[in-house]
């Protein structure tokens, strides 16, 4: 239990996937303009990341390892994540049209989110047990959401600020991301696995 809690705090705050490991920068900058889209993307990522870690861990442990096919993990994981996202999309569309409307455009985007792939690969490399791997996936996705939501909040306020011409647009966004990342460095060493 203690180890699970540690995993949660480490991957939300200390080794935040976006701000510490720099995974998933594309959606982090792409959909953080509005709080509404940021929350939509966050929900989609939490869902897909946890599911993907669950499925890839099972596949790795019960298919790839017994047949000495560990070197195929990247190809397999790409296959799993792409199919999973597609499956979730078709299912959601039928079962919950409202949720589909909300997450709709973000789901296909997630297929190419490298953070998902990284979680799947790291869960294997860190030699987590099954429960630990799922909790790890959940924590990493919550960390991603936290970074995204904070960024969206800052950017919504930046919209109203007067920004020097040279810094407008991507420049000020990247600077903000950098400062945010520095701030999260403050959590370093607070928890260790």
């Amino acid at each position: 239990m203690e180890r699970l809690l540690t995993i949660i705090f480490v991957y939300i705050l200390v080794e935040n996937f976006v701000l510490h490991r720099f995974f998933g920068i594309c959606p982090f900058l792409g959909v953080s303009r509005k709080m509404e889209t940021a929350i939509g993307m966050s929900m989609a990522v939490v869902f897909v990341m946890t599911m993907a870690t669950l499925v890839t861990w099972l596949l790795y442990s019960f298919v790839l390892v017994p047949y000495n096919l560990e070197y195929l993990q990247i190809v397999t994981f790409i296959l799993v994540i792409a199919s999973l996202v597609q499956l979730v999309e078709t299912t959601l569309r039928k079962i919950s049209p409202t949720l589909y409307q909300g997450l709709g455009i973000f789901l296909p985007l997630i297929t190419t989110n490298c953070a998902i792939m990284a979680v799947a690969l790291l869960a294997v490399r860190e030699e987590f047990t099954f429960v630990e791997a799922v909790v790890f996936g959940l924590a990493a996705s919550i960390g991603f959401s936290l970074a995204l939501v904070i960024m969206a909040g800052i950017r919504e306020r930046l919209e109203l600020a007067e920004i020097p011409d040279v810094l407008q647009g991507p420049a000020v966004t990247l600077i903000t991301a950098g400062i945010l990342s520095l701030a999260f460095l403050g959590f370093g060493g607070m928890f260790t696995l």
Binding site: L64, Y67, L79, T90, I95
Partner: peptide, 27 residues
């Protein structure tokens, strides 16, 4: 050969799953 079989089967499995889902959850 193992690699080809494993990946091929996985691909086939996911493909079947997706096409079934598309059929069942068709909108």
């Amino acid at each position: 050969i193992y690699a080809i079989i494993a990946l091929g089967l996985l691909g086939l499995l996911f493909g079947l799953l997706l096409s079934m889902a598309a059929r069942i959850f068709a909108v």
